[in-house]
Nucleic acid binder design. Structure first.
Lengths: 351, 351
DNA sequence: AGGTAGCGTGGGAGCGCTCCCACAAGTGAT
DNA sequence: ATCACTTGTGGGAGCGCTCCCACGCTACCT
């Protein structure tokens, strides 16, 4: 028995077998207790639990994974080249939600970076090897092949920010449409007459929805949306500057700007200031994300807060459900899951 | 042979055994090739590698972990209640460095949150179960029992931001002393005469070192450091406000402030502005961290940049070395490793 | 010639678990 | 009383790997 390894028998961690011996039952029974099977009598269960406690037994994950062909781990795949993604508190907040929700479970969170081609290669191998039970996908581009790969491999996956209205994976999103609406309605309620919008990258579905919200809010307020008040940005500060410059040139009389992100709002603010416009006196400004930038901007920026931490929680919830079902949503047919969480307008001095 | 599981034999992933059959060698030999043992002839190695490629063989991590009693995983332990820590880009940047350095290896990064007591409990169990080969510790308090636990369990660990000059774990740090010096020297070079310092929490070693750097810079410039120009803060915005208020009351004639963090600098700025002091005309202001806040402050804040991403890389480097040595530094006696990376002063309009 | 290394190799044993079959004992219908 | 079932239980077999012992072989010393 002691021919292998060299870990002395007293120093090593207790095994199932040892717990079984201690409790005076068989190995199978201990396994059933550990895994919460109902097919165990109360008396036996109590005896086993006592033995587990006395010995300080902790299951060996590797052995379990090998025997059961599951991993008890899920991967959070991070498309790292998106520096923007990292710099924003988005990631941290989501991570906090994910961590909180996961702490109730036995699941491990594995962080996988899929930035470079080499990393993506490795990820593909990873997934093919089924080294995780499920995958969390954040900020995926519309043309990313990853979601399809996951579908093929039948690996449960949840995506934050669906790629389109027809997203095939289970998804969690915040209410971009409603968030944009509330921002614009707030500006109109404040008496603003000519509200411009700097959009995010329009290949991002959420950015499209914000445009929709902006349009509908204006339309419902009885205005014919003047298309020329919409200027595309790209979520960067520089993009915000460019868009603001263009808007100002076309519409010197605008009195409000709704930017699709705080970062773009920061860029817009610079241009407005250089153009001599006072905020909020001449032009009201509203951002999106409610990031640290919004709080520290001068003047502090009104912004739409997304419940990012809650989104993280929701993602885990949905993923665990799918894993429990042992089948990805895509193969379950119509029963796709989708969660949309409400946003909140945080009003500050800029509007 | 097919009594277990149910994964049909053709659908399953190839095993060592199958590779061995294909290459016409024994199981042991394939294992040696996979693990890069030198005790294999070139011809055999080539044959095995061909078989591996043809079959698309990927080792089963669980089986390996079980047999070899190692995990090929390292944990990044995050003391989550430190919201400050999350909100700052510190975490993201470090993560990027860690990820980059790790992508060259087979190691997995595991994220473990150790915020609540329950999470800490779980973490302790985790470590006791040796479910990771090594641990990365970030922003640990001086009185945290975790480092000692790691030492006892003989788990290789690297800490970012040593807890004291006598840190027992391998550590990576930025040059807080030098960073503070450069900030103060910059202020003096700009003609400032009365330079105040708002410190971080002094139970944080790095904050102490910044105070040391501040003092020495003044002393070396021939001034007797006036202790009353030092006011303790706590890394928060509110703390910055309080400290600035106190400093202004005691020293209405101060003409420069070096804050131990950008967030505190933001607080200080508010107070200075309310007191009618212009920045940088009346009072120059320098922060620490070079965070997004610094860039977006009005005026943009001069700040000390820490090479956080590089610190992440260095931590992985050191940790992998320790794991390779298979013994934590603490038991190797005097041979402790410690890396200190240089900072950089980013000069902006506030000074 | 015999001895003694050392290399490269094959394969047994074992890591700690889960799965499942077999079986004993109890329960109720026939 | 017989024949089902059901419930709880024990333990064999196997997951895919690593470790290590044993073996055949070559090379070089006595």
């Amino acid at each position: 028995m002691a021919s292998h390894g060299g870990r002395g028998r007293s120093g090593g961690r207790p095994t199932l077998e040892e717990v079984a011996a201690r409790a005076g039952v068989g190995r199978g029974t201990v396994s059933r207790v550990i895994n919460g099977s109902p097919r165990v009598s109360d008396a036996t269960r109590a005896a086993v639990e006592a033995a587990v406690a006395e010995l300080g037994y902790v299951p060996n994950t590797a052995a379990r994974a090998l025997a059961a062909n599951r991993t008890d781990a899920i991967a959070l795949v991070v498309p790292e080249p998106e520096t923007r993604f990292f710099a924003e508190p988005y990631f941290s907040d989501m991570l906090r939600g994910v961590g909180a929700e996961l702490s109730d479970t036995e699941m491990q969170l594995l962080l996988i970076f899929a930035g470079s081609d080499r990393e993506r290669q490795r990820l593909a191998q990873y997934l093919a090897a089924h080294r995780v039970d499920g995958v969390l996908l954040v900020s995926v581009h519309a043309d990313d092949p990853l979601p399809d790969l996951l579908g093929q491999l039948e690996i449960p996956a949840v995506i934050s920010g669906p790629r389109s209205a027809a997203e095939s994976l289970t998804s969690v999103d915040s209410d971009n449409y409603g968030g944009a609406r509330s921002a614009v309605e707030h500006l109109l309620a404040g008496g603003r007459r000519r509200v411009a919008h700097i959009t995010g990258r329009l290949d991002v579905y959420g950015a499209q929805r914000r445009v929709d919200g902006y349009r509908d809010a204006l339309r419902d307020a009885g205005r014919t949306a003047d298309e020329l008040l919409v200027e595309p940005g790209d979520f960067t500060e520089e993009g915000g500057r460019r868009a603001m410059t263009a808007l100002l040139a076309r519409h010197p009389d605008l009195d409000a700007v709704f930017a699709g992100s705080d970062v773009m709002a920061a860029g817009a603010r610079q241009v407005l200031r250089e153009a001599g416009r006072r905020i909020p006196d001449d032009v009201a400004l509203v951002g999106y994300d409610d990031s640290a930038i919004a709080r520290h901007m001068d003047p502090p920026l009104t912004s739409v807060r997304q419940p990012i931490e809650e989104m993280g929680r929701a993602m885990i919830d949905l993923l665990l459900t799918e894993i429990a079902d042992r089948r990805p949503a895509v193969s379950r047919g119509l029963d796709r899951r989708r969660a949309v969480l409400p946003t909140e307008l945080v009003v500050r001095a800029s509007s």
